Simulated scan of single mutants.
Amino acid sequence: MPSLAESGGREGSGQLSAPRLRPGTPERAGLDPDELAHLVREFHRLTDGDRPWAAGAVLVAGRGPVIAVEEAAGWAVRYAAYDEATGTGVQLPRRDRVPMTAHTAFDLASLTKLFTSVAAVQQLERGTLGIDARVGAYLPDFTAAAEYGITVRHLLTHTSGLRPELPLYDCPDDRARRALLRAEEPVTAPGGAYGYSDLNMLLLQHVLERLTRRPLDVLVRDGITRPLGMTATGFGPCPDAAATEDQRRPWAKADRGMLRGEVHDENAWALGGVAGHAGLFSTAGDLAVFCRTLLAGGSYGTARILGPDYVELLLSPPGLGFALDQPWFMGDLAGHGAAGHTGFTGTSLVLDPSTDTFLVLLANTVHPRRGPADNGPRAAAATRLARAVRGVSGAGA
């Protein structure tokens, strides 16, 4: 087992401790209480009705070290199945449903990419990984990546030219999956246009594991979640998590039935549940700690997972793993360096260094079946938080 310093996390490094999160009032957080009241009302409407935006959701928002909003709504488990004939979910009797709580864990889906990115930047800080080093230097057996000169920077910025995904879930075994990934050639020239791809984080996972000789779940645990006290965060299974999808073809890529506590992403499932692009489970409270750590320059309490310069590198344009200033889910928080990500299952987080605010909105929008993404509620919630900052600032606070 590596020490915290070896894996990236550090404790007792001689610096002043960073304040830990604590619950408080909007006023103590420096936020407009009226705007936050609107935010809470709008949040609870998201799970109302026969066809809600999500079966259930959890919201945590704050500024500085103060959590000003922590709310849960709806159901962690509402449906037994999806009925193709009616196009609706088969609802469980109320007595058999599982209510959502503020401590419910969620399948994070692509929010996992943020943790893989932090694990990579930890290796940059240690000097064991070069951001412009070629992937082939670490993975010479990944012949296509080596031939086309794909670099670590290309993976972290989604400019590798690789297509969005591969059907690893259709491969008969791990050897076939690995062979498919090794041979995958970019469809556009590396270093060119942005092209979001799960394959970037899968290759980055292989780089990190080859470099450190430790699996990704250990790197994330020892370098990020354990030093930060994020005890509810880890790769699955997670039996008490919010349910996701009645996963069946043709709308899904595998026939697995109603999922709860097993990773939703089909490729992550095929890879055993630990993947660079998906597989983590967590709670809104734990993710608030993650956001606060980055807003505080990489420290939380007495723990430090990154130095301030490397947090700045992580969150500077174009962003390493993080999306920057995207109004489609960040609303009016976007525009001054806000960073975050969304996940296919209905998860999202935003942190805004310019206002020292954070917003975590977790929902099981794919329960009982996936559909077209509606990011309007995410953007609206972020806009309410931005207005809460302006409302106080406008009053001269």
Rank of each mutant, 00 (worst) to 15 (best):
A109W: 10
D170P: 00
A183R: 15
L155P: 07
R178T: 15
T116H: 07
F142N: 03
R177E: 01
L139C: 07
A144H: 04
A119W: 05
P167Q: 12
L181R: 14
I131P: 02
L162N: 12
A144Y: 04
A144E: 04
L155Y: 07
D170I: 09
I131K: 01
L124G: 05
T128L: 07
L108Y: 08
I150M: 04
L181F: 09
V187E: 14
P186G: 12
A176M: 08
I131G: 02
R182T: 01
R163D: 08
S117C: 03
S160Q: 09
A109N: 12
T128R: 08
L155E: 02
A120T: 08
R175L: 10
Q123R: 15
A144R: 03
D141K: 04
Y169C: 13
D132L: 01
K113T: 10
E147M: 01
E184M: 09
E165L: 02
Y138W: 08
F115W: 04
H158D: 10
H154Q: 12
T157F: 09
L108Q: 12
D174L: 13
L162F: 11
G130I: 01
A176E: 15
G127V: 03
E184D: 14
A109K: 12
H158K: 11
G161F: 09
A109L: 11
S110V: 06
R182V: 00
L108P: 09
L111Y: 07
I150N: 05
L162Y: 13
